[in-house]
Nucleic acid binder design. Structure first.
Lengths: 189, 189
DNA sequence: GCATTTGCCTAAGCCTATTAGGAAAACTAC
DNA sequence: GTAGTTTTCCTAATAGGCTTAGGCAAATGC
């Protein structure tokens, strides 16, 4: 019998696509096995277990997202860079909800350390160069920005914003205006 | 054989406690059945299915959280109210991670409409009375605050903030300072 | 006390995850 | 090319979890 030729990378990619289709929490080894035309048990030659697969998808999403951010902020500064970076997160969450959810998976410390996670913090910190913030305010600001971007993406996706009154598009641009203003006039302690 | 005397409310409460112990996604009918000393199938007399139970936990958490917020902001205004409201969300997320996750469950529109969800938006809007914001900026601000609080809680819980440098306690208070300043000097469009 | 409703049970089917052990394909090295 | 090794896939089996169907006994209403 000829082999299907599955690899861990293909499996991870397929899992990411499946996650975008049915939600990260509904990604199952059984579904993937069917999709590849092999038996479930065969997948254990490529990934340790279901958790391992989810971790791989998380790492994929983190790296993919970091690359997109790096691209978007290249050559930009100040509010321009802020808008670009924020837009990448929001768009990614909307276009790849499953992958975005995967990127939120809690990783164990070693895995997290080897992930693109640090690049994210690093790039957010980079756009703060366009503003006049010293440590430790810079770190506070990085965390605040991370909170807003992640919170906004999550709430918007989850329908947390009522579909009424001002549309989310406008809220988004006004939120960025607000954050820009805040960073330009960061309050003294 | 005497009955265990399970009710939907007890079940929901137990599920909420279990969620705080093992994580919302790991709440299972099987575990609850064991905890009540009945068979799994018996639970279907009280809840329609696993999804129904999760929905009930979500509604419980939303209501509980709304009550806590209402209590916290009573008699406060301005930054005082902001800090109180924000603190409730953060503390609840840390003390009841499972319930907090449940509160994020995506509900179908009718269920959501009947939930305490609206009270949350309402109360956030209320604290903005201490600031000089007109519509539609008020709505933008409500969404921004919601994003920050939710995002912060999620990232802090998930270990998204590296455990290094300034501790999260300080970031939290500086974040509130920043939001207060932002609301006091909301940028014109 | 008797009828009805309600709570719980057994039985069974379906899905997913995981492990163990085996066979054949693919690859390596002469 | 062929012998040996590794890799990939398989079957078989176990263990959980979710859900439905049908039945009996406990609680409740009159």
């Amino acid at each position: 019998m000829k082999r299907a030729g599955v690899t861990a990378e293909q499996l991870t990619r397929a899992a990411a696509e499946l996650a975008d289709e049915v939600g990260f929490e509904n990604v199952t080894l059984a579904t993937l096995a069917r999709r590849f035309g092999v038996k479930e048990a065969s997948l254990y030659s490529h990934v340790r277990n279901a958790r391992d697969l989810k971790t791989r998808v998380a790492l994929l999403a983190l790296a993919e997202l970091a690359d997109l951010v790096a691209d978007a902020v290249a050559g930009r500064a100040g509010k321009d860079a802020l808008v670009a970076l924020a837009g990448v997160y929001r768009d990614y969450a909307r276009e790849h909800p499953g992958r975005y959810a995967a990127a939120q998976l809690r990783l164990d410390p070693e895995t997290a350390a080897a992930s693109a996670g640090a690049r994210h913090a690093q790039m957010t910190r980079a756009i703060l160069r366009g503003y006049d913030l010293q440590e430790p305010d810079q770190t506070h600001a990085v965390r605040l920005l991370g909170s807003v971007f992640h919170g906004y993406a999550t709430l918007e996706m989850g329908g947390g914003f009522s579909h009424s009154a001002p549309d989310t598009e406008e809220t988004w641009s006004r939120t960025l205006d607000a954050l820009d203003a805040l960073l330009r006039h960061w309050p003294a302690p």
